[in-house]
């Protein structure tokens, strides 16, 4: 289990991402799984730093990653006010297709097997089974 509280800082987030991905590789996760975990983790960390903590260096981002032989669970928690994920517009409806935002959460949901938020909306928990392959396109879930 990796448990860390990092500053609101992209460099620290990148270092932690590499540590978690390194652990996943050591455990035997393949390229597709590592691609999915990296993408979801990057999106979660960027959301925590940008939207949650609003780049406030006084705030922390707390991450825990349990990388098991068959399943990985990652939790990312920021110190912001939280948000309602259900209120984020669907980026795949026609009128939003060319809007340059709103795809991070959709990609996290597509690449991980489970994505859930706490009630406040400042903590995301994601889980992925090992070797569960590439995600299916929108509308095929």
């Amino acid at each position: 289990m990796i448990e860390k509280s990092i500053p609101t800082d992209l460099t620290a987030a990148r270092r932690l991402t590499e540590e978690i991905l390194g652990r996943a590789e050591a455990v035997g996760y393949g390229e597709d799984d590592r691609f999915a975990i990296r993408l979801a983790l990057e999106e979660a960390l960027i959301n925590a730093i940008r939207h949650g903590n609003k780049f406030d260096h006084a705030r922390k981002v707390t991450v825990s990653a349990d990388i098991g032989a068959k399943r990985t669970t990652i939790t990312v928690c920021d110190e912001g006010a939280g948000f309602d994920p259900a209120a984020v517009p669907d980026p795949t409806v026609d009128e939003n297709l060319e809007k340059p935002c709103g795809r991070g959460i959709m990609l996290m949901r597509a690449y991980m097997d489970e994505v859930s938020y706490n009630t406040r909306g400042n903590e995301v928990r994601m889980a992925k089974r090992r070797c569960s392959g590439l995600p299916r396109p929108a509308g095929q879930h």
């Binding site: 795949t92 297709l97 060319e98 995600p135 396109p137 929108a138």
Partner: peptide
Amino acid sequence: SPPIHEAFTITRLNEV
């Protein structure tokens, strides 16, 4: 690459 193309497909950006 196929995994990145998948991200385009999931978000329908392959149509844009």
